[in-house]
């Protein structure tokens, strides 16, 4: 071993690194806002408009699951300014003191947000989260293949449709269906209730064609299956592709889900982050965004601008009484371990 060579190797590796770091520092004059959102969850031309209007540069990154996002934020080393987590994850982030309080007075467009989506359990005093998109889940079915009326979650256990049923490859969503059928809370941590739900899902497994992710949309459009769990926003998209598909929120109830904009405590540009949130809620911007996404808006001004057909679409905007039968996911804390154990058990059968 000759020492100088090691020295050279180290030098070769580190010099560019140092140079890169220096280069990064020299351009600090321009404010960069780091936005962290779900994949394909914004009309990206809106980001360009914001940059033009405000002179703030946006660094846009995406994540695939709440847990993925959580680990990145929790471990630090990242400087996100606006993130868009879901309900239960916001509760967890608040519990762990990772979010900055938001002064809603500074968001002029806050008044447009439908009050039905404010003060929910994950942020009861509206101190941390500004709702972005909302929706429900229900059953998507093919009218030509399902002869029985689809009004209850029970139909996903009907042996007549063996190997025609798709469930979500996601612990909380699939367990939620079992809880709804049993009449339990979607956030139960009671061992007996969990076991009962697990048994229900194990009993259902022989009837299930597959536990799926995003590809359930393609499978339903191509008529590979007759019944599937489905998110309200996707329902609109698939119905356009195949006119035989119908979306129903079963009578037992559903899950109300919300993705909200929040500002992490570690953000160095909280003022600019507020400006961005304000911008996203401007009616014309929010309308463009919702038209691109195909989900339901929670902006009252945008809702008034929608055509009657969209506004009366029960998939997107379920009748008022549904809101008495929906429940938001909560952070279940340590029960996560039990949930995932159950899921492994179901899937290893």
């Amino acid at each position: 071993m000759k020492k100088p060579c090691t020295g050279i190797a180290v030098l070769i590796l580190f010099v560019p690194l140092v140079l890169l770091t220096l280069a990064g520092c020299s351009k600090e004059t321009q404010i960069v806002l780091n936005v962290y959102n779900w994949g394909d969850y914004i009309d990206e031309s809106i980001l360009d408009d914001f940059e033009k209007q405000s002179g703030i540069k946006i660094n846009y990154e995406t994540f695939a699951t709440n847990e993925d996002m959580y680990i990145k934020v929790k471990q630090g080393g990242t400087k996100y300014d606006v993130i868009v987590p879901s309900d239960y994850m916001i509760e967890k982030l608040i519990k762990e003191d990772l979010l900055a309080k938001i002064d809603v007075e500074k968001i002029q467009t806050y008044k447009y947000i439908d009050s039905r989506f404010l003060g929910l359990r994950f942020d009861p005093a509206n101190q941390y989260a500004v709702p972005y998109i909302w929706g429900t889940f229900g059953i998507l079915y093919n009218r030509t293949k399902v002869s029985d009326p689809v009004e209850s979650w029970d139909i996903l256990w009907n042996p007549k449709y063996a190997k025609q049923i798709l469930m979500m490859d996601s612990v909380r969503d699939s367990l939620a269906v079992a809880f709804l059928r049993l009449g339990y809370s979607l956030n139960t941590t009671d061992t007996a209730q969990l076991t009962e739900a697990a048994e229900l899902l194990i009993q259902q497994k022989p009837l299930v064609l597959a536990y799926v992710g995003d590809n359930y949309k393609d499978m339903m459009v191509q008529e590979e299956a007759a019944l599937s769990m489905c998110w309200s926003g996707d329902a609109v998209f698939v119905r356009e592709q195949n006119a035989d598909l119908e979306y129903v929120i079963p009578k037992e109830g559903t899950n109300l889900w919300l993705d909200c904009m929040v500002i992490p405590k570690s953000s160095e540009h909280q003022e600019e982050a507020l400006r961005f949130i304000d911008f996203m809620n401007q009616p014309e911007i929010a309308q463009r965004n919702i038209e691109y996404l195909g989900y339901a808006t929670l902006n009252t001004a945008v809702f008034d601008l929608l055509d009657t057909q969209t506004r009366e679409d029960p998939a997107l905007y379920p009748p008022g009484e549904v809101s008495s039968r929906w429940e938001v996911f909560a952070d279940i804390g340590d029960a996560n371990v039990a949930y995932n154990r159950i899921w492994t058990e179901i899937k290893s059968r």
């Binding site: 699951t65 371990v337 899937k347």
Partner: peptide
């Protein structure tokens, strides 16, 4: 396998991506 056959690879993926139990 339609997610019906959980293998150890899937279990590891689940721990890292969905449970966050590194």
């Amino acid at each position: 396998g339609g997610g019906q056959y959980m293998l150890i690879g899937n279990l590891i993926e689940q721990q890292f991506l969905y449970v966050g139990d590194w």
